[in-house]
Design a protein around this nucleic acid. Sequence first.
DNA 1: TGTACATCAGTGAACGCGCGTTCACTGATGTAC
DNA 2: TGTACATCAGTGAACGCGCGTTCACTGATGTAC
Lengths: 246, 246
Amino acid sequence: MSASTTARERVRAELITEIKEVARRQLAVAGADRLSLRAVARELGMVSSAIYRYFPSRDDLLTALIIDAYHAMGDAAEAAFDAAPDPRGQWRAVYRAVRDWARAHAREYALVYGSPVPGYRAPQDTVAPAARVPLLLLEPIRACWSAGTLAPAFEGPPLSPPLRAQATRLAAEVSPGLPAAVVARAIVAWTQLYGMISFELFGHLVGSVDPSDEFFHHATEQMADFIGLPPTRGPRPGAAASRRRK
Amino acid sequence: MSASTTARERVRAELITEIKEVARRQLAVAGADRLSLRAVARELGMVSSAIYRYFPSRDDLLTALIIDAYHAMGDAAEAAFDAAPDPRGQWRAVYRAVRDWARAHAREYALVYGSPVPGYRAPQDTVAPAARVPLLLLEPIRACWSAGTLAPAFEGPPLSPPLRAQATRLAAEVSPGLPAAVVARAIVAWTQLYGMISFELFGHLVGSVDPSDEFFHHATEQMADFIGLPPTRGPRPGAAASRRRK
DNA sequence: TGTACATCAGTGAACGCGCGTTCACTGATGTAC
DNA sequence: TGTACATCAGTGAACGCGCGTTCACTGATGTAC
């Protein structure tokens, strides 16, 4: 682990980053199936076979991009979360951050949440990064539950025994003590969020609520009510950040 | 329009159908980007250029498949709708039919609701077929509204003026008189439904609620409550059909 | 500090593949008189 | 009913393209003594 070894390793790490950046840029233009190792190499001024020093195959490069995308989204959501003043604010912040990230990185979003890339199987390494956003969404729910302030807008149907079992097992892993019914609701909201974003990005809201900003914010509050997060006291979402800076 | 002309046209129509069937079968295996005109021609025992007698380009074949997929899904949903006894039953029936169809035709579903095919732009002809399922979902809501039995589980946030305008315009096109707030809720439910199905098919529920049947049915009822459809009197979803046969 | 050797990065040619689309053409099927 | 002509379906060769991956190789960078 001498200085020189580190130097070589540093160069190597930089090139890996650079390859991923170029690949991401090409992804943004072309979509996942059009992503080509040869094109990436060309843009980097290398010969195509040189890429194989860094990624053993195209699929491995794709996997790296997928993991990066999950993390980029997780980072954005986490930063927004941290800047929010209270549980409902955190909920809003994560919703908004996920959507903003998705709109700014539509192809990367599609890579992760769109149709599975044919022939590609996601390895286990993607599981943890993928869980970051849902875990963040659970956090305000858990906090309110602990504080006794979680007040679902309506009771909803009872859980069937198998669903109760699934939700209980999940709660144990992720937020011990949270009731199964609450977990089930959270999953409903989670799927709504991504369904809404996918519809917006993939063009299915054209003709109904497009542009979608207002609808998005409305759905955010609907789902927060559905979950039972108590209303924020004081200023509304956008204002929260500026209040901090004061 | 003599009999002989019709004969030739009939053969032509049959070949168009056959091409689409083969293409659909290949889609089921490979995914949209791997769909190849040459492969389709090969399977039909034709030379690849012969396809151009029937579809001017690969994109036109894709468009035809997309429209067919919307219609297949619409047909399935409509049949289920027609067999249902009351508004909530219709809601359930459509939810279930859409999911069943999606699971049975995952690649076709992905073609339509997954990532947009790179370089492909959906022409206007897809709009009406795409609207069939959402229109079916609105139907029980409209019926209950007219009957005065629509009872949302909670009031929810007020609509911002722009959202109210969008929802009102949409209601005017689609279900005149339906209040904007109801339309907005319907869209929330609609996006939840497809988000849930996409997550299930694309593997994002692995590790939470997989298998997803129980969760799906739970979400169906949650969303029906959310919308305010009155509960069904008597037997539950599965039983409705057998009751008919009795 | 200097030399012999091992490791690694990158090259360039090649393999073998499949694709969408065009074009001039041959026959067969239908139409008009 | 029969013939001349027009329409259409399908052929086969070709154009021009890009792809992922392998392999033997040259140099440069680092390591051990």
